[in-house]
Design a protein around this nucleic acid. Sequence first.
DNA 1: ATGGTTATGGACCGAACGGTCAACAACGGG
DNA 2: CCCGTTGTTGACCGTTCGGTCCATAACCAT
Lengths: 193, 193
Amino acid sequence: MARPRSFDEKQVLRAVRDHFWDAGYAATSLEDLMRVSGLGKGSLYAAFGDKHRLFLTALRAYADENHAALCDIMDSAPRAVEALRLLLTAPVADAETARRGCMLLNTTCELAAADPDVRAEAARTYEKATEMIAGYVARAQREGDIPATADPGALARELLTVRQGLVFMGRTGIDLTALEATARSLADRLLPL
Amino acid sequence: MARPRSFDEKQVLRAVRDHFWDAGYAATSLEDLMRVSGLGKGSLYAAFGDKHRLFLTALRAYADENHAALCDIMDSAPRAVEALRLLLTAPVADAETARRGCMLLNTTCELAAADPDVRAEAARTYEKATEMIAGYVARAQREGDIPATADPGALARELLTVRQGLVFMGRTGIDLTALEATARSLADRLLPL
DNA sequence: ATGGTTATGGACCGAACGGTCAACAACGGG
DNA sequence: CCCGTTGTTGACCGTTCGGTCCATAACCAT
């Protein structure tokens, strides 16, 4: 019927997401996006709308992917309490991950005050994460590793908060050995085994 | 000898800092800075250098002021362990503070990957904060509120990390009542009284 | 009062910004 | 084979960007 697209939508979205992730929203120009995606302005606009819409699309894709990856990592632990430990230790386990930080965290800091869409995405994602973590807490309680008296939702919010703190500290360029030790120690204190 | 300045340097720096704080670095234009400071371009440049130098000056002033304010708050507590509790509960105690977050945290997320000067400022400030906190930990140990076996530096890094996590979560727009409860609960678990 | 010196404010600059558009290219159905 | 439809490309638009510069203003020592 008509000319087919010459690009893979997911691949473009990934390239664009990577640039927003590293450089931030405001510091990324359309020229940057054209370069990393290999597309012309017109194609970018026709396929994804303007810069802001493209950004939100990339952000949402990132948040979903990230959530799925976190679920995978935690699923790999045999006991729920170990999965909860991974929640704290994984984000600082290797240098590249630690330095890059989390795209949602970075852009929330940059834009939360000015952009309701970003706030909404953050709220949505962190609520989903809290529920997921609370599920692991409940399982760890059934497995006898966490006292049954604990409130799964409250503990989940604590762990998520601490995780974000660790992710942020990784972004600052702090010494990674010390940060790993901090993560382990926090896991020891918050998840008495 | 010559014409005197028509503005107060600290006042201008505060106005400029406020705008960078809320809007971020890249999203702030020289026109914004002229508007909030009431100065013309020429005066701004003559007094503070270009946008980036002005930003760094404002950031450093913020970091120093913030550190001093934190010291004041913690000094108000009679026992060191209570000061350490305040480290976690103060940043989420009122809505305005929580929503605004921390300028250094916000800009570190935005610029850490691209701007070595910002990384350096973050490293400098967080090292200073860690030392200050470690001092309180040591005092709390002398006062018998924290086990003498604890490593003050390690505990300080943990508390700072958790504090940053709480500050970040406040910026996301999360429910503040829940966040306060999270802060209190984390304080209870990390600072056994 | 005046001259030396610095501050001020806004005109001005080239470059880069986000966004639009129209001419052209590539495909499939008839 | 050719036409309708959609994708691609790059020229082009007005605006805004950060930064420079200079005529003028305001001050103080003399």
